[in-house]
Every structure is written in C-alpha cells, then in structure tokens.
Write a protein that binds this DNA or RNA. Structure first.
Lengths: 339, 339
DNA sequence: AATTGATTTGTAATCGATTGCAAAATCTCT
DNA sequence: AGAGATTTTGCAATCGATTACAAATCAATT
C-alpha cells in the first residue's frame, strides 16, 4: 500500500500553503483561477484523495444518516430504503443501518449515535422512542429526526405519514359495496398506534355502512404471516364466520389466505380479502391481492428530503407531510354471495 | 445544546493528564486501579462521551463496513443483512449501505470509499467489480472484501457461496423422480455466473436422468416476477409445453405460476414448479412453493465473520466457505400425469 | 509615488482523541 | 539508605483536514 497523499504534499508540489490547497479544492471563491488550476493539477498528478475522517472531525459533521427499523428483514422497508438512499446519496450522505428488534437498549444506542455525532440525522421507523433520552426530552421540529411510517404520539418531531384511518375506511367500504355484511378485521398489535388507526377506520366504515361487528370479529395478530394464519383459524373455527376480511397488512393476509385454502375455502368466491401495504409480491400472489398501496419509494424520498431540510436548517417545509394511499382492486375480492 | 465534555475536561477534574484519561478509559493495563477509578468517576460525573470521529481519525479506522448490493429492494438480501448486522454490531462495527443498481460508476464509488478508509471492509453481493480499480488490481485474500452470494471469477478474494450447480441438480432430480419427462428451465440472465451454474446443474441432471432438452426449454429471464411471467408464456405458447419447471429463483417462479393460473393450468396438478431461494413468502404462497433453501442469515453471519477475521488479520480461516443448501418440498410439485 | 481598499495567500490554531518517549514514582533488593 | 528495576504518569507530537486572523499582493485613485 503506497503512502497516502495529503494536502501538505500538494501544498509542497504546487508551491502554496495548505490553506490555499484546501480552499482551492473546495472551490472557494477566495482563490484565483490560476492558483486553483495549479493546485488541481498537482492534486490529480499526486492522485490525491480527501481524507473524509479528518474533514469530518474538523467540520463537526459525519455526513451520515441513520435509518432505524424495528426489524431489518421486513420486506416492507425495502422500497423506502431505496427512496431514502436515492436522495441521501445525491446529497453526499451515506446510510447507516440500524436495527432495533424492538429492544429498548438498542434504540438508546442509536439515539446515542445521533447525539454523539456519529450521524447527522435519523429516519425513524420503529414507532418507538426511548422517552428518557436527552435527545427525546428536548426534541422539537428542528431535531434532525424524521419519523416515517409509524407516527409517534406526543412528539413534535417531523413526520411523513399516511392517513391510516381513511385508508382502512376505504378498504372496508369496498367490501361493503360488494355486498358483504359479515366483514371481520384482523388487527395488528394494539399498543401500536398504526394498528389502532386502522382498527378505528374499520369501525367507522362499518358504522357508516350500518353493519354490526360481532364480538370475535377483531382478532389481533402481530403482522406476521403466521399470526394471519392463526387469526383466520380463530375466525373460521367460530360460529358465524365472516364472508370478507380486511387484514391490517399483506403478510397477515397471505397467512389468512393460506389458512382459508387449507380449509377448502376459495378466495374470492367464498371469502373476499383485502390487505394493506401492497408488497412487491401482492400483485402476483394467487389470487392477486386487493390491497391498500402506499407510495413507499416516495415516502422514503420525502422523509430524506425533509431530514436534509432540517439538517441544513432550511426550515421552510412543513413538519408533517401526509402521503396519498390508494386502494388497488385485484382478484382477491368479489361480490358477496346473495343467499 | 450543552458543551460537549472532552477528555481534557476529565483530565482537569480528575487531576491527571489526557494521556492517562485516554488510557484509563480504554482499560489499558498501564494505569493503576486507583487512577482508573478516579478517572471513570470523573467521566460519569461529567457525562462524558467519546468523540468517535476524533478517535477514528487518530487510530485510522472507521469501524464501518460497506454492504454493497445491486438492488436494494430485492427481498432476497434481507436476511443476509440481518446476519451481517448481528455479527457487525457485536464487534462494534456499523453498517453502511451501498446500492449499485448495476452501475459501474457507483461500484467505483464504493470501492473508493473502501480505499479511502471510509469503511474498513466490504461485503460485496453484486457479482461485479470495477476491474480497473486499484483495489481490485492488487486484491488478494487479505483484501478486506468478502464476496457473498455471487461468485466473482478470476479473483482470489474471500468468498461465501453455495454450490449452485449441485443445488440445481437436486431440484431437477426431484422433478425427474416424480416422473416428469418434459422439464424446462427458466434461466437467470446468462452473463451472470450464478445463472450459468444453475443452468449447468439443470443440464447435468437432465443428462443423468436421460432426458432431452428441446430447443425452447431454456428461456432466459432476469430474476423479476415479470420476466418469469414472460418466460412461462413463451414456453406454453409453443408446441410441446413442459409438465414441470425448474425456475432459477422464486420471484420468477411466482411470475410463472401467475401466468399458468391465467391460462387455467393448475399447480401442481397440471404443471409442477420448483423455485430457488426460499423467500420468506414462498412457504405461504398458494400453493406453497417447492424450492431450494439457502441459509441466508447464516451466510450473512459467516461473511461478516470472515471479514472481521481479515480486518483483524486473523488469517487462520479459509478463504472460501461453502454453505449448505437444501431442497424444501412443498405443494407446488407433484407426480407427473401418467398418460 | 503614496494611499486606500479589495483580493489573495499564509501562519498557526483547532477539531478530540491516541501514543512514543521521557520523566517521575514506586518497588526490590542488597 | 541507595542503586537499580519496574510501574505509572505526563509531555507533546500526531492523525489530516478547515478556518480565523494576519500578512502580502494587487488595483485604483489622487
């Protein structure tokens, strides 16, 4: 490994001071075109490369943002990653992955990294914050944190979100419009605000459609395929099974459909199913899944853009951005059997 | 924002020099238990936090590894990420995401980051390297790069891989054993070594089973759902359609199954399908997909462990590790129709 | 030619740690 | 008690950039 060229070497070769080199290379207007050229020439000749570590120490930035999720292997995040990555790299930021596994200590760790300057900002997708952390205590709209996907209550942090309640209502109305009367909802875990909002949308839509919600029609899962399976089992083992399901995410919907299949029930002939998320696979599932689509790449882009605005103190933008969802009708829903 | 405490402040408070503070905090054996205690106490009292940037500059490390993929939103990577993350964080390394989109310039960018010390190592999952990059030119088994998933030819870099050819053979033999004679293979893009190996396995197995491969039985896709669809269309539009498909990855298999469904062909009654990868969704697809499973989390762990070995110059480990795959038989394959 | 003002460059401090080397303190042994 | 060996500590350089401030250069004006 050959010796790294540093700014000092260029200074010597170009016959100027290190200050001038630094300025020339960063296109400062303080230096003449002639010197700038001389320095540039020396730099390329010596094959100079900036030492990012040194620079970051001096300018007190790290040019990195933390992307914190609760479970790295959830496919839902993928396209958000992509949107974030796109904007981040365009702005010269690198992406640090954070994975909390819903563990409080890990959450603290990432907040520590932010406080300690290992990252200049954070995109938080865990729906959770260590309430006792100093960053959280004096958080404001100027704190370089953007909460995406999952709202965090009682915080005035910047948010990018969708209207979960309205989207859920739309899904349920779609089923009601198809003539379904017995519509059940497979919930996400209830402490989470996300799940609560979708549940709320379900209830509102049912009320608006003048439909009852039997006691057992709101089984609670945890967003996993497995739990979708179990919730469906509970629903269809009981008396008075539904003819339609609104499921809080696509993965549980897949689980539910699998369970229905095992019981010899056809989708959509016997039971209609609507999911939520529109995973990459949902359109080619069999049957292709009717679901709520979120503009995930766009959510990622927006979140990162907002974060940059905060970091660069361009405060113009609003602190909360709401993204549009849409109901994608595919083949997993059909008219209710008119018996 | 309060002033950050630095090592100097602790030194003052504890009445020692900065050198001693540094040593005490890093548990150097050079300092007495008494002083160490004094320093520790001052540090917690002042709420001291190490400035990682400064430290990294001084020790010439960045405690970061680059995870480079060709397409960030490919769900296949997810569990590998997880395995890598697990080992990396345990060793105190952070994960930098790199996304090349198969763009040469971007690949160069990440190799630059490695050379410039923005990362101490790299896990490469693109199957590609910028051949003209200085790091590549003098790469050896000691270069802190571990190639995972996709082999790179003519390089003596460390690899973690599976035996694609053998796994493909196993898949095809499974179909042959079920009595299928007309078995087609939907390939991945052929410049890639991965695709070529799986194709080779298919051909070998067909030869071993004494089966012919008609001219049109090796359509080429690009690993996307869409292309699986198209390949299936081509196969079944033609005369002499197959009764079984070995598809080079699960996503294309989903696409193919979707297309079969649209044509009124049932899986597995009319056509058997075997995939490759065992995505999280494959087990609950309808029908649950027979496929080759790779130990993805384990691949990630192994890759990161090897990388750490290289970084820490613990050269003991072998440069190439081969991981075991297994055929998971589910419901997308069945006995051939005996007509 | 001298003065003033505007540009351009250089000197040296700084970011906040780590560490080689020398000095000081402690311990061992006669 | 004193010499020598050993253990602890401190001084100051270093990592490689950026930047405040001072100095030098240049241009314009009288």
């Amino acid at each position: 490994m050959s010796e790294r060229t540093k700014i000092k070497d260029i200074a010597r070769v170009a016959g100027v001071s290190t200050a001038t080199v630094s300025r020339a290379l960063s296109d400062s207007s303080l230096v003449t075109e002639r010197t700038r050229e001389k320095v540039r020439e020396a730099a390329t000749r010596l094959n100079y490369r900036l030492n990012v570590r040194a620079r970051n120490l001096r300018i007190q930035k790290s040019m990195a943002v933390l992307l914190v999720v609760r479970n790295m292997s959830n496919p839902f995040y993928l396209e958000i990653f992509k949107g974030v990555e796109e904007v981040a790299r365009a702005a010269g930021f690198v992406l640090l992955m954070g994975n909390t596994e819903d563990d409080h200590d890990r959450e603290v760790e990432y907040f520590d990294m932010l406080r300690d300057g290992q990252a200049d900002g954070m995109i938080l997708m865990t729906g959770n914050m260590p309430a006792d952390h100093e960053i959280v205590r004096d958080a404001s709209g100027m704190t370089p944190i953007v909460v995406a996907l999952e709202a965090i209550e009682n915080s005035n942090l910047a948010h990018v979100q969708i209207d979960n309640c309205a989207a859920a209502k739309q899904a349920v109305h779609h089923l009601a419009d198809l003539g379904h009367k017995r519509i059940a909802h497979i919930c996400g875990p209830l402490p989470e605000i996300l799940s609560r909002l979708r549940l709320e949308g379900y209830r509102k839509a049912m009320a608006e459609a003048g439909l009852d919600i039997p006691a057992n029609y709101e089984p609670v899962g945890n967003y996993s395929i497995q739990s979708g399976c179990e919730c469906a089992r509970a629903l269809f083992d009981d008396v008075n099974p539904p003819t339609a399901l609104f499921v809080a995410n696509d993965e549980m919907a897949f689980g539910a459909i699998g369970e229905l299949r095992r019981r010899g029930l056809r989708v959509p002939e016997d039971v209609s199913v609507v999911g939520f998320d529109d995973l990459f696979i949902s359109q080619s599932y069999s049957p292709p899944l009717t679901t709520i689509s979120q503009p995930r790449v766009e959510i990622g882009r927006t979140a990162m853009t907002m974060l940059l605005d905060i970091i660069n103190a361009r405060l113009s933008s609003p602190v909360v951005t709401e993204m549009q969802t849409s109901l994608i009708v595919r083949e997993s829903t059909g008219a209710a059997d008119q018996r």
